[in-house]
Computed example of a mutant assay.
Amino acid sequence: MALHALPLPAADLWLDPHFLSPTLAAALCDDLRAAVPWEQRSIRLFGREVAQPRLTAWYGDPGAAYTYSGLRWEPRPWRQQLDTLRRRVEAATGHRFNSVLLNLYRDGHDSMGWHADDEPELGPAPTIASLSLGATRRFRLRPRPGGPAAEPLGLDLGSGSLLLMRPPTQAHWQHALPKTSRAVGPRLNLTFRWVAGG
């Protein structure tokens, strides 16, 4: 299956729910969970330091440093399977990427709060390609303040799915991965990006 457009006003959103086969997606999830040097960094929230509710890693070309939530990430050199995935995502989307942010959600207690990927390093019109591995989780989008008069959207992103967010999506929409009380296994998310200067 190829990418198909999702109807969302003031956005350019595409989804391929079966970008990777279940067997390949499961093998990649297991390998990356075991091999990546995961970190759990702290951020300042309402005046106090709190640990991010997920594990994270950053890979990319030399110079593709990235800063978000006050944290600066220097890229680790590409692992072979990450570079292979990057080339495959580039071929499917027609976009180039020089870095990838990996987030490991260990269970339903791990999450990502509301945000837009609009850091200065990503440029004025960023394209983000998001690959999901492991457990299915509900990915949510909502209009940014002053954005389109539209209802929020929820997407159940399964293992091996690829979501492409092209401009102007980040300018008008926020996204999140909320906590869930359901018993759910680990989920690994890889968001490929182009960082200016990298």
Rank of each mutant, 00 (worst) to 15 (best):
M1I: 01
A2I: 12
A2F: 06
A2Q: 04
L3M: 02
A5I: 06
A5P: 09
A5S: 00
L8D: 00
A10V: 11
D12R: 07
W14T: 01
W14D: 00
D16C: 00
H18S: 08
F19Y: 00
S21M: 04
T23P: 07
T23E: 14
L24V: 14
L24P: 00
A25D: 00
A25T: 06
L28Y: 00
C29F: 05
A35I: 05
V36A: 06
W38H: 08
E39T: 13
S42F: 07
I43M: 05
I43E: 12
F46M: 07
F46S: 06
R48F: 01
V50L: 12
A51C: 07
R54L: 04
R54T: 09
Y59M: 10
G60E: 11
G63V: 09
A64L: 13
Y68R: 05
Y68I: 06
G70A: 04
G70D: 02
W73P: 14
W73I: 05
E74N: 12
P75H: 10
P75D: 12
P75W: 10
P75F: 12
R76H: 15
R76P: 08
R76D: 14
P77S: 14
P77V: 15
W78S: 12
R79N: 09
R79P: 09
Q81F: 06
L82W: 01
L82N: 14
A91K: 13
A92F: 13
T93D: 13
T93W: 12
G94F: 06
G94W: 11
G94K: 05
H95A: 05
R96G: 13
F97C: 01
S99E: 13
L101S: 08
L101P: 11
L102F: 07
N103G: 13
L104M: 08
Y105S: 07
G108Y: 03
H109T: 15
M112I: 02
G113M: 14
G113L: 11
W114D: 15
W114S: 01
A116D: 02
E119I: 11
A125L: 11
A125T: 10
A125D: 15
P126A: 02
P126G: 00
S130G: 02
A135G: 09
A135W: 03
T136V: 14
R137F: 05
R138S: 15
L141Y: 09
R142H: 00
P143R: 07
R144M: 07
P145L: 08
P145D: 09
G147L: 06
A150C: 03
A150D: 01
E151V: 09
E151N: 13
L153A: 08
L153E: 12
L153M: 11
G154I: 14
G154T: 15
D156I: 12
L157G: 05
G158C: 14
G160P: 01
L162P: 04
L163M: 06
L164Q: 06
P168K: 07
W173Y: 15
Q174K: 13
L177R: 10
K179C: 09
T180F: 09
T180A: 10
T180I: 08
S181K: 12
A183P: 13
V184G: 11
R187F: 04
R187E: 03
R187L: 12
L188C: 06
L188V: 09
L188D: 07
N189M: 02
N189Q: 03
L190I: 00
T191L: 02
T191N: 00
F192D: 09
R193I: 03
W194K: 14
A196T: 15
G197F: 02
G198F: 03
G198I: 05
